[in-house]
Simulated scan of single mutants.
Amino acid sequence: MSTQASETDGWAGVRKGRPQVGAFAERSHRTRSEDIVAFTEMTGDRNPLHYDRAAAEASIFGRLIVQGGVTSGILNAVVAEDLPGPGSVFLEVHWKFVKAVGVGELITGRVEVVDVRADKPITRIETSVRNEAGEVCLTGTATVYTVPLD
């Protein structure tokens, strides 16, 4: 999935080396009410669609939904842990939330490398989050910088 960098390019010192175009990684998580509470503790987002079952069920969503940050958060884990890997942070994201994620849904975040700079540890990736029915919930692109850690 990756190749080692030479001392003269921008990938020297990156733990997993330079990723290859076409490489991908996925991670799954079943959403829980606890995710909503944890996200609220971090952000203060107390939207009734996340907490008021009656209001959420009467809405277009028909159920309690998790915050968008919970949905996109799985991509943080994929990028930081899997591809490109440790030391990676988002520089820029372009995401479209196309389907709400309900409490109890299994979501899978996926990143795929579409471009890798040779002079700097910067990767452009396609991103998506799908539910267990395979429906796209989030789609878009991101640019990631990987800090050399060694």
Rank of each mutant, 00 (worst) to 15 (best):
K16F: 09
R30E: 13
R15D: 11
G73I: 06
D119T: 09
G44I: 12
V111T: 02
G17D: 10
T108Q: 05
A55F: 13
R46L: 15
E81W: 10
G140H: 05
V21D: 04
I122W: 13
G85D: 05
S6P: 07
I36N: 03
L91P: 01
V111E: 00
A133E: 11
Q4A: 15
L83K: 03
R124A: 15
G85I: 01
H29I: 08
A100M: 08
K96F: 14
I60Q: 11
G109W: 06
S88V: 08
H29M: 13
D52R: 03
A58L: 12
T3P: 13
E132Q: 13
V14D: 02
T40Q: 10
V136M: 10
G134D: 04
T139G: 08
F61W: 05
Q67M: 14
L49Y: 01
V98G: 03
K16C: 13
A5K: 06
G13S: 01
V21Y: 14
F90Q: 05
S2Q: 13
V113N: 00
E7F: 12
T31Y: 12
L83S: 02
G134L: 11
L49T: 00
W11G: 00
V144W: 07
T40A: 09
I125S: 01
L91V: 12
V129H: 00
G13L: 04
R27H: 12
S88P: 09
G44P: 09
V116S: 00
V79T: 04
E126D: 08
A58C: 09
A142V: 06
Y51C: 13
E34W: 05
G62C: 12
R130D: 07
F24C: 15
I107V: 09
G104N: 05
G13Q: 01
E135I: 05
T141P: 11
A5L: 12
A23I: 01
V93Q: 09
R117Q: 15
V78I: 08
P84R: 02
S72N: 14
G104P: 03
V78F: 11
G85E: 15
A5N: 07
V78G: 01
